[in-house]
Design a protein around this nucleic acid. Structure first.
Length: 274
DNA sequence: CCTGCTACCTGATGGC
DNA sequence: TGCCATCAGGTAGCAG
């Protein structure tokens, strides 16, 4: 499920739990979560390694180790859970956990019922193709209106697809691409070459505003890894189009429409977005 | 190089 | 209630 704001909030929440701590042991309960790597390889690489830093790149989460780094991707359904030492002794830890990183003070569990997410080890983050080719971080100073204009370029594909293209902008997914286009008043079907510089300025502002607002929402309340059922709450309240087909546009009251683009749902207001 | 489609998985939801 | 179809916030890999 998560896009940039959710992954950033997870990174911030997990950082104080594991930074400076040593992974005593890595247990791979469901090997699909580490494919195409091997469970034994991951165990060997992570065991007795110290976590130096926790970082986010696009939607990837990195645990920098004293040797190499753990690369996590939550994909659609992955989550992190934290089990304090006491719970582990009561044998609660293994429930639904795919990969467990055991520290002296507790265990960090990766769970993903759908098994699309991954926990893997790489010598360097750049060894991951998906990370190497990531585009600009939209909340960094490098992300400017003219940079956005340039990266949309003269392509004829719909602007919504390019917004979600991780090699152009890192971390924007279906929800916030939809929301940014609504906020910018741009039709998701508009071709990139049709996005003029005044549109690009509005779109740039909208992307930044939407992500900032969502991040705020994700940080408060902060992720509670100790509650196995926990996930980000309250995001519905900040959504204007996503999953609101047939409901009134919050700006003009016209009905929100749903169409399909690149196999994903796009939601927009045909009156406000042109 | 660029673009578009499919596979990968499992659970939730809604219509009949 | 049960069954079936559809949908889900992502990416890699492959074909054209």
């Amino acid at each position: 499920m998560p896009e940039l704001p959710e992954v950033e909030a997870v990174a911030r929440a997990v950082r104080p739990l594991v930074c400076g701590r040593t992974i005593q042991r890595c247990a791979v309960i469901h090997p699909i979560a580490v494919q195409p790597q091997s469970a034994s390889g991951l165990r060997r690489r992570l065991g007795r390694r110290r976590v130096g830093a926790v970082e986010r790149r696009g939607k990837y989460l990195l645990l920098r180790l004293d040797q190499g780094c753990v690369v996590l991707h939550l994909r659609l359904d992955g989550k992190l859970l934290w089990f304090p030492r006491r719970e582990m002794r009561r044998g609660k830890t293994k429930a639904h956990v795919d990969v467990a990183l055991e520290f002296a003070h507790g265990t960090l569990g990766f769970v993903d019922r759908r098994h699309l997410g991954r926990v893997q080890w790489f010598r360097r983050a750049e060894d991951v193709a998906g990370i190497r080719t990531l585009g600009v971080e939209p909340l960094s100073p490098e992300f400017t209106a003219s940079r956005l204009s340039a990266l949309l370029g003269a392509s004829r594909r719909p602007v919504k697809l390019s917004l979600m293209d991780q090699t152009r902008i890192a971390g924007l997914g279906n929800i916030y691409a939809n929301e940014a286009l609504w906020r910018a008043g741009l039709d998701p079907r508009r071709s990139c070459q049709g996005v003029k510089s005044s549109d690009a300025r509005r779109l740039h502002k909208a992307v930044v505003a939407v992500l900032r607002r969502a991040l705020q929402c994700c940080l408060d309340p902060a992720p509670n890894f100790r509650d196995p059922k926990w996930w980000f709450q309250g995001l519905e309240k900040i959504l204007h189009v996503y999953r609101r087909e047939g409901q009134q546009c919050h700006w003009c009251r016209a009905k929100i429409q749903r169409i399909e683009q690149g196999g994903r749902s796009s939601f927009f207001c045909a009156r406000c977005q042109r």
